[in-house]
């Protein structure tokens, strides 16, 4: 982050709220959880591996925030039900569910070469979006809360490298729009964030392709890659807060201006 870039201030926008973030142990999920915790939310990190999620939750607690980790493989409906139940039982409510987790094979390549690995993408994004929505619905309705899906600009512009990833990420946007129309009368807002941020996965991509960072930065008007806490987190905070009480069915692209097609 540039030294003269203002940092979002702690204003307690989410004081008293409870948020659950899938894929919350690292990367953008942890960034979102951290930003929400800094704004007063109690955060539940839903992580596939406790050995990753627990240290992340502990680091948040050490910083004075309210956080816990629950083990959750988002391809398991039972795990999702248990994670949401754990959040509600321990903290009494669920105001926001952020479905960020994504898994499966998204190896770049020609469309014709896509094998069964794409079904992991389908399971973690499309099926898990369906499951998280159904499981969270009664609790979000009780709280007047919001559901957020992490999607991608690839879903809006297509991708020459990752066609299966583009397909599943696009589909989440239409689901969010449909749910925004079905659930508006329940007081639930449903939105998407399309981020580009420095994550462990991005770091691995840089390591494999050292020119990637320069190319990405060059095509980004703000000339940097986002930070999960400082750049993506505040967008999720906004969507979860009352500031966004009239915003639903939308996708906010948080990528430094790289995608301008909306």
């Amino acid at each position: 982050m540039s030294p003269d870039t203002p940092t979002p201030v702690d204003t307690g926008l989410l004081e008293g709220r409870v948020a659950l973030v899938t894929g919350g142990a690292a990367g953008i999920g942890l960034g979102i959880a951290t930003a929400m915790a800094e704004q007063g939310a109690t955060v539940v990190l839903a992580a596939r591996r406790l050995e990753n999620g627990e240290p992340a939750a502990e680091s948040l607690r050490a910083a004075g925030h309210r956080a816990r980790c629950v083990r959750c493989d988002v391809t398991s409906r039972d795990d999702l039900e248990e994670a949401v139940a754990a959040a509600v039982e321990e903290f009494g409510r669920l105001d926001c569910l952020v479905h960020n987790a994504v898994g499966g094979s998204a190896a770049p390549g020609p469309l014709e070469g896509i094998g069964d690995g794409w079904r992991g993408l389908l399971a973690t994004t499309v099926r898990a979006s369906f499951d998280t929505a159904q499981v969270a619905h009664p609790h979000l309705a009780a709280a007047g809360g919001s559901l957020v899906f992490l999607t991608s600009a690839a879903g809006m512009e297509g991708s020459a490298n990752l066609p299966a990833y583009a397909m599943v990420k696009a589909s989440q946007r239409a689901l969010a729009k449909s749910l925004s129309r079905e659930w508006g009368s329940d007081g639930i807002r449903v939105n998407c964030i399309a981020p580009v941020a420095m994550t462990p996965a991005m770091a691995r991509a840089y390591a494999a392709n050292p020119e990637l960072e320069e190319r990405l930065v060059e095509r980004t008007p703000l000339r940097r890659i986002g930070d999960p806490v400082e750049d993506i987190g505040p967008v999720a905070v906004f969507l979860a807060s009352d500031l966004a009480r009239f915003v639903t069915g939308q996708t906010i692209v948080a990528d430094g201006g790289g995608f301008l097609g909306l």
């Binding site: 469309l111 499309v126 991708s159 583009a166 599943v168 589909s171 239409a174 689901l175 729009k177 449909s178």
Partner: peptide, 27 residues
Amino acid sequence: MGGAPGFAATATAAEGLRALNKSAARQ
């Protein structure tokens, strides 16, 4: 593009296919 109450699943598939079409165009 606009979502469909009562047909969320179909809208989900439709937007996914729309992105697939764009990816095929690029490849």
